[in-house]
Amino acid sequence: MSLVLARIDCRLIHGQVVETWVPHVKANLLIVANDDLAANPMLRSVMELAVPVGIRVRFCRLDEVVAAIAEADRAGDRSILLLSNASDAVKARRDGASFNLLNIGNLHFAEGKVQISPSVFFAPEDFEALRWLRSHGVSVCVKGTPFESGMSFEAEG
């Protein structure tokens, strides 16, 4: 299994990912699946600067996730999949992305959202997405860094 972590993080690549998760799961590839980013070369070039030497990054559109993971599998990479929100995770999973454990790191506060952990806020549709994921064999774990004890929502059935 070469997909070592699937994570929802509205900031995608940032300090928690490169400084704590990458060494923790010994990853060498970051797959960033995000349509906005795939369409914006300037933001991509800033994000590339955030990747440590020795770690590769691949940007792809949401509908390319499965292909990107398969390619990483073939190359024998240990990859981290980064998605920016819960509905993207549902889409990726529906397309056949192979993760059974999903980490939720950060989802920003906005009016009408419910606080789940210090840095994770759920909108009503996020609960919906979470329910769908859990009923499709995905366990969800809310934590920013591996140091936190976090909060787990086991898969159902």
Binding site: R11, I13, H14, G15, E19, L43, V46, M47, P52
Partner: peptide, 16 residues
């Protein structure tokens, strides 16, 4: 668009 990337660069360089 910039804050996450700059956060990662800064966290690795300054704190890490």
């Amino acid at each position: 668009g910039w804050m996450g990337s700059l956060g990662a660069i800064g966290d690795s360089f300054f704190w890490g």
